[in-house]
């Protein structure tokens, strides 16, 4: 990402701007909560932004993969009652790791099937992509209900991840810190792969000019399938974390998040992982700050934020050039 100071300063400025409206400890609690939510949103959005950037593919079915990840987590967590009840960190992390692994595998394979059966047929036509993926979403939600039932399923937080720590007078939920750490780790890994590996180079080049990447001899369509699978798996990871965070999983848990996910993609600049990262944190913070200051305006405030950013940068914070 090029050095773009105004866009990079936005986040710190936003953080500081909220401070005068509340006490420091409240601000800190809300900021960590916002960062945690932002990280989970980033997990859901990061794959989608690459899917769009690389092949210009719009999918509305992404929310189903978030739900699927959350449902897989309910089963994995329910299957490990002793470890969930244990207060040891190792047990808690083992539960989390098991849930994440299972979700990655299952959402990854489902994503692969979805690409081959549906997405592949509608390359190049946004209208058909929208219609068919909205249809796919409805079918996927019915499938989730068929497997897990229509009733909400509770999901227990591992004991060691419950409760809070007090930092600088602010009470901070441990699970939120874990979510922040996981989101940061995924962000760093994605950026390393994109900037340091040949595969990452191909993705970045493909986002800009897919024909030229093909003319250099790379089979971009295969690469796209891989990116799509990774995107779905990351949505699954986001779903696991969001499901545990909410404590209750419904078929709508993923699709509900998609409004915010699309706001993030548009705000960050479609196709930009760095943009999605910044925008996700902004949305997480905005949701929490406004939820505290004016609870009724929580969703509306994000839309206002998006509109303001688009007035300033019509193509998002970190737009990509297509040539």
């Amino acid at each position: 990402m090029k050095r773009d100071w105004p866009a990079q300063l936005l986040l710190p400025v936003f953080l500081l701007a909220a401070l005068p409206f509340m006490s420091f400890s409240t601000w800190l609690t809300l900021t960590v909560a916002g960062a945690a939510m932002g990280m989970m949103l980033f997990l859901m959005a990061s794959g989608l932004t690459l899917v769009f950037g690389l092949m210009d593919v719009i999918t509305f079915a992404h929310g189903a993969f978030i739900s699927l990840g959350a449902y897989v987590a309910t089963d994995v967590v329910a299957a490990m009652p002793e470890m969930v009840a244990s207060h040891s960190w190792a047990a808690a992390l083992a539960v989390l790791a098991a849930a994440l692994t299972a979700a990655i595998l299952i959402t990854g394979v489902s994503g692969w099937i979805f690409e081959v059966v549906i997405i592949r047929r509608v390359y190049g036509s946004h209208l058909r992509q929208i219609l068919i993926t909205v249809g796919g979403l409805i079918v996927a939600q019915e499938l989730l209900v068929a497997v897990w039932g229509a009733n909400p399923i509770p999901i227990a937080k591992p004991a060691a991840l419950q409760g809070s720590v007090v930092i600088a007078g602010a009470s901070i939920e441990i699970f939120r810190l874990v979510a922040v750490a996981l989101g940061l780790a995924v962000y760093v890994c994605l950026q390393l792969v994109l900037s340091r590996t040949r595969l990452g180079l191909m993705v970045r080049a493909g986002v800009e000019n897919i024909e030229m990447v093909e003319a250099l001899g790379f089979r971009v369509k295969r690469l796209f399938v891989a990116v799509f699978i990774v995107g779905c798996a990351l949505a699954g990871v986001g779903g696991v974390m969001w499901g545990i965070y909410q404590g209750l999983v419904t078929p709508a848990i993923g699709p509900e998040m998609m409004i915010l996910v699309f706001i993030i993609l548009i705000m960050g600049g479609m196709g930009s992982v760095g943009g999605a990262f910044v925008a996700a944190i902004l949305v997480g913070l905005m949701t929490n700050y406004s939820g505290f200051l004016a609870p009724k305006l929580a969703l509306g405030s994000n839309i206002v934020l998006m509109v303001v950013i688009l007035l300033w940068r019509p193509r998002g914070l970190f737009p990509l050039v297509k040539s």
Partner: peptide
């Protein structure tokens, strides 16, 4: 054949638009 397979036969292509990846 698809473009990548044609290129892999050993053909280099410099398009009129140059096809430079400007972000890289």
């Amino acid at each position: 054949l698809d473009t990548p397979d044609i290129a892999r036969l050993g053909i280099a292509y410099v398009p009129e638009t140059m096809g430079i990846f400007s972000q890289l």
